[in-house]
Amino acid sequence: MTDWKFMARQLARNPLSLIGIIIIFIFVILAIFAPLIAPPQGYRDPYMIPRDGYSATPQPPSEEHIFGTTEGQYDIFYGVIWGTRSAFHVGLVVIGIVVVIGIVLGSLAGYFGGVIDEVIMRITDIFLAFPALILAMAIVTVIGPSLKSVMIALIVVSWPSYARLIRGDILQVREEDYIEASRGLGASSARVIIRHALPNAIYPTLIMASLDIGAVVLSAAALSFLGLGAPEGYADWGQLTSFARNWIVGPTAEPLKYWFAVTIPGLFILFFVLGWNLLGDAFRDILDPRLARR
């Protein structure tokens, strides 16, 4: 049983987790107010970054383009702001679906045991036999590159770990049930007991899942960077960074001339993931009684 107030207090006390919360909060604001901060131009899909010309050379930050433009004259500022939206979109959708699949399959495996358990476990074994990014790459290649296929690929790659986690939680709860049952505390249906005890067991897993959003966004960015994700010109952090590949080194006189194209999108990814990881670390410290501060 976690006391929410106590947890909140512990979180607030830890400076690192505070920073994490603040970072995430800032990103949430950016995502919600994206249309105000970086107004979309005209009737096109707001996720497509407006182009100011077609020249390949990135332009440095100026009054018109606060963060400059990247290859193809895509406005970096617009890209990273709307990229926040796509990041949350990808992260929340993937984790949401993964958790649902994980709960369903994990509960089935854990509760029924026997053949169903074995089958589901073997299936997860097969999926887990592949290093995640590599399997995701294969899936995206097969379906055809797009942000949607990246999300599908990440869902396919991530659900096995969660199914296993939840199965483990259910098994633990089941153990206690049998012990109680054998003490003759009543023959109420095991399912009812599980329905009550299950939420408690799942809380930590759910919390961990929500904090994996950072990891999912990182993987999605990697896939986009390789060119397997969002199409060119889409407001996606990984996509923006992939443009920078050609502009790492400037002319001999000013080698760092195009730093903004490389650094800025990457910084957004870094801080986004950092925020979630800080929060995740803090949660882990709280939930682990051994490491609790005195």
């Binding site: 960074t241 590949r245 080194v249 400037g250 080698p255 760092l256 993931v273």
Partner: peptide, 20 residues
Amino acid sequence: SLPTFWLGLMLLMVFYGLFR
């Protein structure tokens, strides 16, 4: 939290670009 690809690019930018 570092995106591996970003770290690589930054390192290249500095050690290949800046340091010629």
